[in-house]
């Protein structure tokens, strides 16, 4: 009986031996890096099952006893500024979903208006944004903080209003998207008696759903993970990353590293799950290439 032929993976077809060897080598490097990411995550999982003392004294050993209940204790014991896990989760969702959603809706509407409508100044936002992106301004942190404080937006849920910004990179994405949309859809709707609000809401906006979804998810991942501005502007309304930071620094007057690392694992799960579910949406709908002016 003849041996079955080894079928090369589809990706290897039409590649020379040298390229196959290169791909295997590159894959090995990628494996090492990816394995290090997974190791770090698993280390946190194991640390979450240890006692505080075990984590300090033997950080790399397996636990003497696996305390899986720590992952449930997180929900009651992770507390910062009188805010527990659920409060911080609410704050994280409020500011990530709320801020990103508001920002994208405002930006999308702004980009649509500037792209599809001609009025004095309709071209200016595009030019301004290009200038803003390519001519960086530094050092306005202090001035910004004073403005937010004067407006009562420090340590306040109203801080979300700062997301009502249309002058960002996202404007360019939406602009490119709407530019490529034919106006004939709008004209057809106008003939049916639709006004500009209806055209935008029922015709154009739904067509921008794919790019909106991808950008929303990308933006959400960034804000979900953000601690720098939240630490400055929302110290008393801690989001999860700020809560973790404060629990580690200002609040570790009680020794609970076990809860801290269990919390790190718990709070990573929503983002991991969402990303696995939507990674194709993100990677295939966002393109910065060949944006034609």
């Amino acid at each position: 009986m003849s041996k079955p032929k080894l079928r090369m993976p589809k990706s290897f077809r039409r590649k020379s031996k040298g390229e196959i060897a290169l791909h295997i080598f590159v894959s090995f490097i990628f494996f090492l890096v990816a394995a290090s990411y997974v190791y770090v995550f698993l280390w946190a999982v194991v640390a979450g099952t240890k006692t505080h003392t075990e984590i300090v004294i033997n950080p790399f050993s397996l636990p003497q006893e696996w305390h899986w209940e720590h992952f449930l204790d997180v929900f009651s014991l992770l507390e910062v500024n009188g805010k527990n896990f659920w409060d911080m989760l609410f704050n994280s969702i409020y500011f990530s979903v709320g801020a990103v959603g508001l920002q994208h809706i405002v930006t999308m509407s702004f980009a649509y208006c500037c792209t599809k409508y001609k009025f004095p100044g309709s071209e200016w936002p595009y030019v301004i944004i290009l200038i803003m992106l390519t001519l960086p301004l530094y050092g306005s942190g202090g001035a910004s903080y004073r403005i937010y404080k004067a407006l009562g937006m420090v340590d306040s849920y109203s801080h979300i209003l700062s997301a009502l910004s249309g002058f960002s990179m996202n404007f360019l994405y939406y602009r490119a998207c709407f530019k490529s949309m034919s106006w004939s859809y709008a004209e057809a709707a106008m003939m049916d008696g639709a006004d500009d609000f209806v055209i935008y809401g029922k015709v154009m906006m739904p067509m921008a759903k794919p790019i909106f979804g991808a950008l929303f998810l990308t933006g959400w991942l960034g804000i979900w993970n953000n601690y720098e501005s939240a630490l400055i502007y929302l110290p008393n309304i801690p989001t999860l990353p700020v809560g973790i930071y404060q629990f580690n620094t200002e609040m570790v007057y009680r020794a609970r590293l076990d809860i801290l690392f269990a919390a790190c694992v718990i709070i990573s799960i929503p983002a991991i799950v969402l990303f696995i579910a939507f990674n194709r949406v993100i990677t295939t709908n966002v393109s910065l290439g060949g944006i034609k002016g």
Partner: peptide, 30 residues
Amino acid sequence: KVPLAGVYRILFFLPSIIFSVALAMIFQKM
């Protein structure tokens, strides 16, 4: 599409998904 590219595409996002605060703390311990 190097071997396991689909897996790497997901795993390589782990640093941006896991909170940088958490990653830094874990890194410091390690």
